[in-house]
Design a binder for these strands. Structure first.
Lengths: 290, 290
DNA sequence: ACAATTGTGAAAAGAATATCACAGGGCGTC
DNA sequence: GACGCCCTGTGATATTCTTTTCACAATTGT
């Protein structure tokens, strides 16, 4: 069984299409903590993959093994083969690709961005920002620019579920002055501005400031001029081997913020989410499985 | 048991002097093929070390374990810690915050997602996908759903700079059938579909498929049903400590793809980018400094 | 020769595994 | 919207494999 040149992980990958939903879920769980999870008792594997015991038994036979112990034996064989060879290191991210492959270089750069971003962030400022954005008594305006409006909308979509009373403004559109008419003292603007910094965004921030609104700014390490207007400034590192900048780190911050706010306001959010679920079910917009 | 900082191998080494001859022989055998040999049945270990079964049983208890299964559990735990790789060492990302702070927990999860995503990705498929998306002779349709349309648009915005002949389609809108009218043989659809998978997206993919278009799918580890229609399937891990899934890893893949394509087509892209720069200068949409 | 160590063989206790029948649910089909 | 198929989980059971622990003999080293 273990004689074939490909690893068990590869073999599972290959047959992924033949597998059913629960089996795929199981396969992914095996691959996720590979190979350790497959070396424990069948029952623990089933539990950690959230599938039933028979599903595991059925699958290993589907994969061509006589039984679970047979499968484990193969895993152990592979493990000892790996250990014998030169110390297998995790120096590349996409193991199947050479380290110069763009996937590895890019991922490397992004991880680096995340590292430095997190090293410089002020958790207190972050928490304050979350509190501001979560505050239902303030109207929430989310502002993005030419590229960053995608991030803005991502935040908007989730905040929409969490709380009422919010607006998505696109600074590059010529409709934004209308929104400002209603904005006032105590409202909150979440502004996204990374280079190249946009004049419209700056103007919008200035006006919001004049009207006594709070401003939370997502920007890059060079800091948009909006930072002079901002009450809280969350900066991310965005350099990657590309002609453009990376939005991934900012996305990570945004998602962290969503998660933090969702925790903060869980009691009231839950109800809204459940209602939303029901609505989705009714409209049959989504499918449940497969 | 597995809480101590030292590995089991080290612990055995340390106590080597306390061991008797047969036990030492056993210990050496365990270390020789570490950790695979310890993960098999007790009897096989005894045999491969040329000691008796009771010797093994006696020794693991001497090492402080309740029994052989307990010893194995510890080994597995260590194995999975090793497999996690070098970055697992990074206990906290945002050093200024405690490790339980959402910033750290979330970042940890995302890094984990990135690692498993990269471990499972097929670089050849990725390159093929890039080539398809870069091919100017094919019309490019980019399709997103309720949440994923933000990612779709992000890709669209950048591809717009790189090449002509592309369309952004939102599967949740009711205008998408119009776009399909023009789609045909050889065109390319980039489809985003993560759970909860959307019926509209599936239908759209089916129709595109029927018309002989190529489909590149961005999805999550549970794989949207669209994968049956897709020529290339790029999956990302999206689990985070939140009520929602994370788009960060998918964003990373998208940006990697943009970067790869930009490199592929640099000669023709440069001109387009320069033209764009000029246009932006003229419209004074952006500011040059500060 | 004595004491400690180790192996033998066996038996009992304990786990883990394989398998079954059945029920519930999703999904496609008509 | 109803029917039926396929997948999946539950719970129970039989079976097989492991582990644990005996008592006792063999071996080794001192």
């Amino acid at each position: 069984m273990g004689t074939s040149s490909q690893t068990i992980a590869e073999r599972i990958q290959k047959r992924m299409d033949d597998l059913t939903r629960a089996e795929r879920q199981l396969a992914l769980s095996v691959l996720e903590n590979y190979p350790a999870s497959g070396l424990g008792p069948l029952a623990s594997l089933a539990k950690s993959a959230n599938v039933s015991v028979p599903t595991v038994a059925r699958m290993v036979q589907k994969l061509g093994y006589k039984g679970y112990p047979d499968f484990q034996a193969d895993l152990r064989e592979e493990l000892s083969a790996i250990a014998k060879g030169p110390i297998a290191k995790h120096e590349t991210w996409a193991g199947a690709a050479p380290s110069e492959h763009i996937l590895n270089r890019f991922t490397e750069a992004v991880i680096d961005n995340i590292r430095t971003t997190m090293a410089h962030i002020d958790p207190v400022a972050f928490d304050d920002a979350c509190a501001l954005v979560a505050d239902r008594s303030r109207h929430l305006y989310i502002v993005g620019g030419r590229v960053t409006h995608t991030l803005a909308e991502y935040l908007f979509l989730h905040m929409q579920v969490i709380r009422p009373n919010l607006t998505h403004v696109q600074s590059t559109s010529n409709t934004w002055p209308h929104y400002l008419l209603n904005a006032g003292e105590g409202d909150v603007f979440v502004v996204f501005d990374v280079r190249r910094y946009e004049n419209n965004t700056l103007k919008l921030a200035e006006l919001a400031r004049e009207r006594g609104a709070k401003i939370v700014l997502f920007t890059d390490q060079w800091r948009s001029p909006v930072h002079r207007m901002a009450d809280i400034c969350l900066t991310s590192q965005i350099i990657v081997p590309s002609a453009w900048d990376s939005a991934t780190t900012t996305m990570l911050l945004v998602e962290s913020m969503i998660s933090a706010i969702q925790t903060l306001t869980w009691d009231s959010t839950r109800d809204r989410m459940e209602e939303l679920e029901e609505l989705f079910d009714k409209t049959k917009l989504f499918r449940k499985f497969t």
